[in-house]
């Protein structure tokens, strides 16, 4: 059984600016009791997530909804174990795989074939197990002869197809996805949809962060609405989407006020 239970998760990002990234200035500041370069450790922190809690069990498909900067990607990264929460705890069981921004992880100088193996290694899959899948991945991504050329020679569409195909070739228990499927041409999207459906079905838990309400309503059964890192609504996906739309509509008038407060 897989589960994912964040409890009061909070994340604060340190913002380093100018001198605070310099060892020299940090040492100077320490030795001169803060007179010289006293701004060396002048750290500003940004609260990206505040006291997020929820329970996910087998079969749960959670949508993370919220505007830009609401904390969706940060939450996915915490759930994936990439960021350790600054407060709160994360209880999890099951093999996690995160599809955050798959084209970022591609190495432009390696060939398509090498990138498939490479991504496998990062996901913890031995090259021995990955090699038999290379042809299937290449075929799905419609790479043709480009499979043995460096990825830097690929078109944007080919890169996304490759990234998608390789990320979805090994089933996983807990699937964390950032919205990225929207890229790609219509022909590919239709085929990706089928593959995605199979992939999601084989996973026990899915968390999908997205701006696209139709996408979210299609794939998810539960939802969480994030605003400035806090959960402002949770429940069945339809209700949460409705809340999001309400707040969006109301937000037109309250946005300036919020800006002044923040």
């Amino acid at each position: 059984m897989a589960y994912l239970r964040p409890r009061d998760l909070s994340v604060e990002f340190p913002i380093y600016q100018g001198g605070s990234r310099s060892l020299k200035k940090a040492l100077l500041a320490a030795s001169s009791q803060g007179n010289v370069a006293r701004d060396a450790f002048d750290r500003v922190t940004v609260r990206a997530l505040g006291q997020v809690s929820f329970d996910l069990e087998d079969g749960d498909r959670l949508a993370l909804i919220g505007g830009n900067g609401a904390g969706k990607t940060t939450l996915l990264r915490v759930l994936a174990g990439i960021f350790q929460p600054t407060q709160g705890r994360l209880f999890a069981a099951g093999r996690v795989s995160a599809l955050l921004n798959p084209s970022v992880g591609l190495d432009p100088d390696s060939t398509g074939r090498e990138n498939i193996i490479l991504r496998g290694i990062y996901l913890g899959i031995h090259p021995r197990e990955m090699r038999p899948r290379v042809d299937e991945v290449a075929a799905f991504a419609e790479l043709g002869h480009f499979i043995d050329l460096p990825v830097r020679t690929y078109s944007a569409g080919m890169m996304i197809r490759l990234a998608f195909a390789v990320s979805t070739c090994v089933p996983t228990e807990i699937l964390l996805m950032d919205e990225w499927l929207s890229a790609g041409d219509a022909h590919f999207l239709a085929r990706a949809h089928q593959r995605m459906a199979d992939f999601v079905r084989s996973s026990k838990i899915m968390v999908l962060a997205s701006h696209s309400m139709p996408l979210v309503e299609e794939w998810c059964n539960r939802g969480i609405l994030l605003e400035q890192g806090r959960v402002v609504a949770s429940g069945p996906v339809r209700d949460v989407v409705a809340r999001y739309r309400e707040r969006e509509a109301a937000g037109q008038s309250t946005a300036p006020a919020r800006q002044a407060a923040g």
């Binding site: 589960y3 239970r5 409890r7 994936a80 174990g81 705890r89 994360l90 209880f91 999890a92 069981a93 099951g94 093999r95 996690v96 795989s97 996901l123 913890g124």
Partner: peptide
């Protein structure tokens, strides 16, 4: 790959959770 705290499942009151590693 990363399972955060496999020995505790996080159910029950927070007072019952074992200390974090």
């Amino acid at each position: 790959m990363a399972t955060a705290e496999p020995l505790t499942d996080g159910t029950g009151p927070s007072s019952a959770w074992p200390a974090p590693p």
